[in-house]
Amino acid sequence: MIEIRGVTKTFTGREGSEVHALKDVNLTVGDNEFLTVLGPSGCGKTTLLRAIAGLIDWDEGDIVVDGEPVRRPGPDRAMVFQNFALLPWATVLDNVAFGLELRGESRAARHAKARELIELIGLGGFESRLPGELSGGMQQRVGLARALAVEPNVLLMDEPFGALDEQTRRILQEELLSIWERRRLTVVFITHSMEEAVLLGDRVVLMSPRPGRIAEIVPIGIPRPRSADVGGLEQSPEFTAITSRLWQSLRTMHPDHRTAARAAAAQEVTG
């Protein structure tokens, strides 16, 4: 379980201006929950994820994972990156085994574990390839396998499919769903795609920018397993009802939206 209580984070810009990346964020993520975080750019969603990962400090509040306050990265949490962050000089096998290697596991043990995960994510036969020889979708499969290899309780995913083309993204969404349905774990998944957020999540956290805070939490009642018929699911009235409701909230936050622009201008005048 992840408990986030009153977390506030302010960045100081170059000219001394303050940016409220997170303001008084309160959120509880249940065990084995798949939580998606949705919001326009600049709403602090990535900052929140990096805080949970222990990569950055915050100013106020607490983040507690399974009863342990977060101070730094820990073996209970693993992260999947938007740009994959694979070692270009290491083979698929060594990339998947990298987290285990840093933890000092023996070569035989970590390679056995890595092979098992390479099978799971459907890259059997590619063990000795270099990342540069793989497509973007395959590279992110490696990134996912590396994270799963360390057997985390919490999987933190930072727009993991954001750099992929539409078709690849759909296939990987299905793949992720089917893996998660088989081996349950807590997932915090950042995205800027409404469809992705609704398709994957048990709940969608909608964040708004300036200052970054939670605007709304929307439970997604669509039954699981969802991986079997993703296409049909996206056509269902339930799905479209939720996405259009999310869109109503999102569009007012969008920087190109009139009231949002007016609000930002008003804030500048008063602040």
Binding site: G74, M79, F81, L87, E101
Partner: peptide, 22 residues
């Protein structure tokens, strides 16, 4: 790529490991 260093941090890499492996 700074994200490689960050990635290795999330797996608990020490500064020595970051040097040797990244």
């Amino acid at each position: 790529d700074a994200s490689l260093i960050e990635m290795s941090r999330t797996y608990g890499a020490s500064e020595a490991q970051i040097w040797r492996r990244i």
